[in-house]
Write a protein that binds this DNA or RNA. Structure first.
Lengths: 142, 142
DNA sequence: GCTTGCCTTGACGTCGGCGTCAAGGACTAC
DNA sequence: GTAGTCCTTGACGCCGACGTCAAGGCAAGC
């Protein structure tokens, strides 16, 4: 199988495969003509990489999984180094999710507060009838 | 106030301020000597930018807030355009958190599965006494 | 032979938010 | 005058995972 076919079967591009090779992640044999040659096992490795990439792993983090498969293990995560990556990733994910939830809460509060302030100002304007300042950007047409 | 002082008071760098100016976000007046000159109001704008940046807003998303303050409003989020940014951000955050939680769950499952497979293999090895394959990377020393 | 399509390497571009020089001007203190 | 500290603009570097273009080789069909 040549590079184009492998890329197509893995749903990626030839550029990506050459990039992986340049990183030493997915080296290729060469045919007489200099073309890269791959087999089903390479497709397996590539799919492992892509799956982890979809999970947000960086390339370097996929390396233990690839090495593990290449060492003949049935799964990319059959090796301790891969499990370590999983665990580290779980920690990172938990930390990140925590931060994002905190940010979400704060932004939510800001929105609520700002909306209340706006409504209070609008109510004020109705009674004493003072001309309130108006935003020029997307300002209310009224 | 010159650029160095403003940067220090906002806990950022002069490079950052020049960058904001280059983006048209925080223009500066100039003294006779060509030095940038800022006042307390600029500090206010800058702090608004920094707060939002800390929340993970990109620079462009802070623009409505800055424009709003510059238009004379009491808060950066006193304008509808700012509220829209808040709302959009909340949506993005919710989506992102959802994705991350999904990924977290999947990675967690993978880890559990892989550990079970490893333990099953280890138990097998104890009884029939077959030499199991060993990982070369961080493999067990035994 | 000629076109078409796949392949090769090399190298520059992308995105965001700055960091990090480099070369030189302005101002203060001694 | 000169040392030191601030300021100026300009420009390249960084990070990750590729995209994209250029110039040219190899193979197959007509």
């Amino acid at each position: 199988m040549r590079i184009g076919e492998l890329a197509a079967r893995a749903g990626t591009t030839t550029r990506t495969l050459r990039y992986y090779e340049s990183r030493g992640l997915l080296p290729a044999r060469r045919g007489e003509n200099g073309y890269r040659t791959y087999d089903e096992h390479d497709l397996r490795l590539l799919r492992q990489i892509r799956t982890l990439q979809d999970f947000g792993f960086d390339l370097e983090e996929t390396r233990p999984f690839v090495e593990c498969l290449r060492a003949g293990h049935p799964e990319g995560d059959s090796c301790p180094a891969s499990l370590d990556v999983y665990r580290r990733k779980l920690g990172e994910l938990d930390a990140l999710i925590g931060e994002l939830r905190s940010v979400r809460a704060q932004v939510g509060e800001q929105l609520t507060r700002a909306e209340r302030a706006r409504d209070a100002l609008a109510a004020d304007a109705e009674v004493p009838g003072g001309p309130e300042p108006v935003c020029e950007l997307g300002g209310r047409t009224r």
